[in-house]
Amino acid sequence: MTTAFTLVQLSYFSAVARLENMTAAAAELSVTQSTLSSAISQLERELAVELFTRDRGRGLQLTPAGRALLARGPALLEEAELLASSVRSASEALSGELSVGIYAPLAPFRAPEILDRFEAAFPEVQLTFFEGDQGSLQEALHDGRCEVALMYDLGVDHRFARTVIDRVPPHVIVPEARAQALAGRSVVSLREFADDPFILLNLPHTGDYYLRLFRQLGLEPRIRHVSLGYETVRSYVARGHGYSILNQWLDQSLTYSGKRVVPLRLSDEFPPTEVSLVQRRDISPTRKAQAFVEVCRDIYQGSEGVSTPSIGRNEPSH
Score class of each variant (00 low, 15 high):
Arg280Tyr: 05
Gln290Glu: 13
Gly242Arg: 01
Ala291Trp: 02
Tyr103Phe: 15
Phe109Gly: 05
Ala289His: 10
Ser38Gly: 05
Val174Glu: 04
Val87Ile: 15
Glu28Leu: 14
Ala104Tyr: 01
Pro105Ile: 06
Val275Lys: 05
Phe270Trp: 10
Cys296Phe: 03
Val156Cys: 02
Gln216Arg: 15
Gln138Ala: 06
Val100Phe: 02
Ile199Gln: 02
Gln216His: 14
Ile245Thr: 07
Pro74Arg: 08
Gly155Asn: 06
Leu141Val: 06
Arg191Met: 03
His225Ile: 02
Arg56Gln: 12
Glu269Lys: 14
Ser276Cys: 15
Ala121Asp: 09
Leu190Tyr: 09
Arg162Ile: 00
Val233Thr: 02
Glu192Val: 02
Leu7Asn: 10
Thr53Tyr: 08
Val148Asn: 03
Thr163Ser: 08
Glu304Val: 10
Glu46Ile: 01
Ser253Asn: 06
Glu28Gly: 03
Pro64His: 06
Arg224Val: 00
His241Lys: 01
Asp195Pro: 00
Arg224Phe: 03
Val8Asn: 12
Glu97Ser: 12
Leu277Cys: 11
Pro108Ala: 07
Gln138Val: 07
Glu92Ile: 12
Asp268Ile: 14
Val306Leu: 13
Tyr12Ala: 12
Gln252Ser: 05
Leu51Phe: 13
Arg280Asn: 07
Tyr236Lys: 03
Gly135His: 13
Ala80Val: 02
Arg215Phe: 05
Leu211Phe: 03
Gly59Pro: 02
Ser91Asn: 09
Thr163Gly: 02
Arg159His: 08
Leu62Ile: 10
Ser189Asp: 09
Cys296Glu: 09
Arg260Glu: 09
Arg281Ala: 13
Glu79Trp: 08
Leu150Ala: 07
Ala104Ile: 03
Thr286Gly: 09
Gly73Glu: 14
Gln138His: 06
Ala291Asp: 03
Pro64Cys: 09
Glu97Arg: 14
Ser276Tyr: 01
Glu294Tyr: 07
Arg178Met: 13
Gly184Tyr: 00
Thr206Val: 15
Pro263Glu: 10
Ala84Met: 07
Glu176Met: 04
Leu250Gly: 01
Gly132Val: 03
Ala194Met: 05
Ala183Phe: 03
Ser41Gly: 11
Val306Lys: 09
Leu127Pro: 04
Ser95Ala: 12
Leu246Met: 10
Pro112Arg: 05
Pro285Ile: 05
Arg72Ile: 11
Thr6Trp: 04
His205Thr: 04
Arg117Leu: 10
Asn202Trp: 02
Glu28Ala: 15
Ser99Phe: 13
Ala179Glu: 01
Pro272Thr: 10
Leu201Met: 08
Phe198Asp: 00
Arg287Asp: 13
Gln42Tyr: 02
Phe5Leu: 03
Phe109Tyr: 07
Leu29Gln: 08
Arg297Glu: 07
Asp116Asn: 13
Asp196Phe: 09
Glu192Trp: 04
Ser41Leu: 15
Glu78Ala: 14
Gly184Arg: 07
Asp298Thr: 06
Thr35Leu: 06
Arg185Ile: 03
Lys259His: 07
Arg191Lys: 13
Arg297Leu: 01
Leu106Lys: 02
Met22Asn: 09
Glu50Pro: 01
Val16Asn: 04
Ala93Arg: 15
Ala26Trp: 01
Arg234Trp: 01
Ala27Gly: 05
Tyr103Gln: 03
Pro197Gln: 00
Pro64Asp: 13
Tyr210Pro: 08
